[in-house]
Computed example of a mutant assay.
Amino acid sequence: MTDRSVLRTLVLAVAALATLFSLSFIATPVKFLAADVPMSHLLAVGRVTFRASIAIESILLFALFVSARGPSRRLIIVAIATVALQWIFIMPELNDRTMARIAGAAVGPSALHHWWIILDVIRLATYAFVVHTCSRHLRNTVGTNVLES
Score class of each variant (00 low, 15 high):
residue 134 C to S: 12
residue 66 V to L: 12
residue 132 H to P: 03
residue 137 H to R: 02
residue 72 S to F: 00
residue 71 P to W: 03
residue 104 G to H: 15
residue 108 G to Q: 10
residue 142 V to Y: 10
residue 43 L to K: 15
residue 61 L to G: 07
residue 19 T to D: 11
residue 48 V to G: 10
residue 99 M to T: 10
residue 63 A to P: 09
residue 108 G to D: 13
residue 16 A to K: 03
residue 48 V to Q: 10
residue 12 L to F: 04
residue 75 L to M: 09
residue 112 L to N: 14
residue 96 D to Y: 08
residue 111 A to V: 10
residue 126 T to V: 12
residue 86 Q to D: 01
residue 104 G to N: 15
residue 22 S to A: 14
residue 92 P to Q: 05
residue 57 E to G: 09
residue 149 S to N: 06
residue 119 L to D: 03
residue 60 L to A: 08
residue 84 A to W: 12
residue 133 T to L: 05
residue 109 P to F: 09
residue 73 R to N: 05
residue 61 L to E: 06
residue 77 I to A: 12
residue 57 E to V: 03
residue 78 V to K: 00
residue 75 L to V: 01
residue 47 R to T: 06
residue 108 G to W: 06
residue 77 I to R: 00
residue 13 A to T: 01
residue 82 T to H: 06
residue 69 R to F: 04
residue 8 R to Y: 06
residue 81 A to F: 06
residue 18 A to S: 13
residue 149 S to R: 08
residue 9 T to D: 02
residue 74 R to A: 11
residue 64 L to M: 09
residue 104 G to K: 15
residue 23 L to A: 09
residue 90 I to F: 14
residue 7 L to W: 09
residue 21 F to V: 11
residue 65 F to Y: 13
residue 142 V to F: 13
residue 96 D to G: 10
residue 124 L to G: 04
residue 40 S to D: 15
residue 109 P to Y: 13
residue 100 A to P: 13
residue 133 T to W: 07
residue 129 F to L: 13
residue 30 V to C: 06
residue 136 R to E: 05
residue 135 S to F: 09
residue 20 L to M: 11
residue 130 V to F: 06
residue 52 A to Y: 14
residue 117 I to S: 07
residue 84 A to F: 09
residue 113 H to W: 15
residue 127 Y to T: 02
residue 132 H to Q: 07
residue 87 W to N: 10
residue 73 R to M: 06
residue 69 R to S: 11
residue 107 V to I: 15
residue 71 P to K: 00
residue 18 A to K: 00
residue 56 I to S: 09
residue 149 S to V: 05
residue 2 T to L: 04
residue 84 A to R: 01
residue 5 S to P: 01
residue 10 L to G: 01
residue 138 L to A: 01
residue 46 G to L: 10
residue 64 L to W: 04
residue 128 A to Q: 03
residue 128 A to M: 06
residue 49 T to S: 15
residue 120 D to W: 03
residue 30 V to M: 12
residue 82 T to G: 04
residue 147 L to R: 05
residue 30 V to S: 10
residue 46 G to S: 12
residue 64 L to Q: 10
residue 27 A to R: 07
residue 103 A to T: 07
residue 85 L to K: 01
residue 68 A to N: 04
residue 108 G to F: 07
residue 79 A to I: 04
residue 45 V to Q: 14
residue 143 G to A: 08
residue 46 G to K: 08
residue 1 M to D: 08
residue 12 L to H: 04
residue 144 T to S: 07
residue 78 V to W: 02
residue 12 L to Q: 02
residue 113 H to L: 11
residue 120 D to I: 01
residue 106 A to R: 14
residue 3 D to H: 00
residue 111 A to G: 13
residue 45 V to C: 13
residue 78 V to H: 00
residue 135 S to D: 02
residue 92 P to I: 06
residue 8 R to H: 07
residue 76 I to W: 01
residue 70 G to H: 00
residue 16 A to W: 05
residue 113 H to C: 02
residue 11 V to L: 08
residue 114 H to E: 08
